[in-house]
């Protein structure tokens, strides 16, 4: 199980979701991915994408215009 990071700053939704999706596709069940975005829409969209596709958001925060969401990869 490994931890990865993804820089999705300055991208507007749904691009952060697409980048998250494409990165998660390369990872294994149990890996974690920390995504940093500047579009607050990601606070809704990434968790929604996770619920649909069987992944889990383990933390999310918003500070100084940056949104950080950590996703745990579910079963493929």
């Amino acid at each position: 199980m490994s931890h990865y990071t993804l820089d999705a700053k300055r991208l507007m939704c749904p691009m952060p979701v697409i980048r998250t999706q494409d990165k998660v596709a390369e990872l294994k069940t149990g890996d974690t991915l920390e995504v940093t975005c500047t579009d607050p829409g990601a606070l809704n969209d990434i968790p929604a994408w996770c619920r649909i596709n069987g992944h889990v958001v383990i933390s999310s925060s918003e500070e100084k215009g940056e949104v950080i969401i950590t996703v745990k990869v579910g079963e493929a």
Binding site: C13, P14, V17, G41, L43, N44, D45, A48, W49, R51, I52
Partner: peptide, 11 residues
């Protein structure tokens, strides 16, 4: 909060 309707539909 703005929802993405495509994600909403899938859900």
């Amino acid at each position: 909060p703005k929802r993405n309707n495509a994600l909403w539909v899938a859900e």
